[in-house]
């Protein structure tokens, strides 16, 4: 076969292969995702109960992904969960920001929602978010509901 045609075909094949890889990286895996690239600051937060939160879960504010959970530990002094997250340095948050564990959809994955406060000082790298709200555990809610119903029934 003609050398030039051969080269052309192989070149097209290799280019196609790399386009496929790029597609997988960009569209499927979304490497360029917001909040995981560029400069980040590390924040800590303690939660009574993290429910089903996992490492790499998104940190969102107003529904926009601003960071990722990077580590989850158990603190045996306070018996609380210690969550470490990296938040994009592009978005500064006030010191009295509230971190709560929320669920996307009824059975969706859990994420950390940040609700900005009104403090004029901003959170710095390594700071701790003091105000936290635990995950809603469905069993506890149902238990509470039943307990309240029972109490109502008893008082009648």
């Amino acid at each position: 076969m003609n050398r030039a045609i051969l080269d052309l075909w192989v070149g097209a094949f290799v280019a196609l292969g790399f386009v496929a890889l790029m597609f997988l990286a960009m569209q499927v895996a979304n490497v360029s995702e917001e909040g995981t690239r560029g400069e980040t600051i590390t924040l800590h937060a303690r939660f009574e109960d993290i429910g089903g939160l996992k490492v790499k879960a998104p940190v969102k504010s107003a529904g926009v992904v601003v960071g990722r959970v990077t580590a989850i530990r158990f603190d045996s002094n306070t018996y609380q969960a210690e969550v470490e997250m990296k938040v994009s340095a592009v978005y500064p948050f006030p010191r009295d920001t509230i971190a709560s564990i929320l669920t996307s959809g009824l059975l969706g994955e859990q994420y950390i929602g940040l609700a900005a406060g009104a403090d004029s000082e901003m959170l710095k790298d390594g700071d701790r978010i003091e105000m936290t709200q635990s995950a809603l555990v469905l069993e506890k809610l149902i238990g509470q509901f039943l307990f309240n119903k029972a109490a109502e029934g008893g008082s009648k």
Binding site: F13, G17, F18, A20
Partner: peptide, 15 residues
């Protein structure tokens, strides 16, 4: 050399 490229093309077309 062609195997990884073929696998990437396979996955992409599959998606």
């Amino acid at each position: 050399l062609s195997m990884p490229l073929l696998a990437a093309i396979f996955s992409t077309v599959g998606v």
